[in-house]
Write a protein that binds this DNA or RNA. Structure first.
Lengths: 161, 161
DNA sequence: AATAATAAGTCAGTGTTATTGACATATATG
DNA sequence: CATATATGTCAATAACACTGACTTATTATT
């Protein structure tokens, strides 16, 4: 979609259409997150652990407070999950080099292996959806979901090819 | 995207790209569901009530068991929420006309009003995202998310224009 | 050097949403 | 009549979130 046609967008969507989209989001997200649960059960972990492992994996050496603002949960909620992951050697904490109050978080090898295992199903689900829908659809998927975010800049797309 | 070019899709996405998409789903869904909570608080309701109200609204006279298979939660989980909504006159139950074991669910006027109020923010969020991204992007959004579902036929798109 | 602010962690209590398992009732179907 | 189905309910439990209050270590400010 180039700039010259940008003015010609239909700017009206009916409530029924918008409710369709709401429902599609619900269904697709429900199925998207429903998968790794079995693996997590084996470790006595839940979805909260999964999210922490994902975001620490994507942001090596992230601080606790930065992780908190991504997850938008409280320190106390994170604490339970994080201390468990550190205790069981999935996540490593080390003192910040310049600010020694910080505890920089990164995945251990064990943590990385779990992330791989957990995300395998989700990655192949997305790959399948992308391949079936085609590259133009993938662009649309990105555009719509980015525009749905409160702060689209929070999403850092690492790789485009 | 027409059938003639369907064979030319790039069929390989890197793990990093796929993890990008996972993250975008997380962020956009987090922001999408984060909004109606304040309204729900006023009624002492939670997200579970919201989901029930939404799906009963979209599927008038749905049976309890059909609602359960959409939500993919247990009967006991639904029961607490549903009986509360019935007790406070947001949802109406009536005996099935052919099968009297069934309790067909529908929104009362009060329930419909609440649904309107709750979905208003989400609808305008989606409308904004659709308008910013453009109609082709909207098509892509639909295609990708549909292909991400376990059973795309579960999604019934009511309106296309 | 003293004070204030920040980063992280912890203790205690609470609430929502989900779970499993067992069982009850009404109705429908073979 | 026996069995299956649709719904509802009781009890116990767990995951994941919350609020509020407080501590410790470290950094920044005055």
């Amino acid at each position: 979609m180039d700039a010259s046609t940008a003015e010609t967008f239909r700017q009206n969507y009916s409530d029924a259409e918008l409710r369709d989209a709401m429902e599609l989001l619900f269904f697709s997200y429900r199925d998207f997150i429903g998968e790794p649960d079995a693996i997590l059960d084996d470790f006595d972990f839940g979805r909260a652990h999964h999210r922490v492992i994902h975001f620490v994996g994507r942001n090596p050496n992230i601080t606790v407070s930065d992780l908190l603002s991504i997850l938008k949960i409280t320190k106390q909620s994170l604490s339970r999950v994080l201390s468990q992951l550190v205790r069981e050697d999935f996540i490593n904490q080390e003192q910040g080099p310049t600010d020694r109050r910080q505890r920089l978080l990164s995945l251990t090898e064990k943590g990385y292996a779990l992330e791989e295992k957990l995300s395998a199903h989700q990655r192949s689900r997305i790959a399948k959806a992308f391949n079936q829908a085609g590259p133009e659809a993938v662009d649309g998927f990105y555009q719509v979901l980015l525009n749905m975010m409160n702060n689209p800049k929070e999403f850092k797309r690492r790789e485009t090819s």
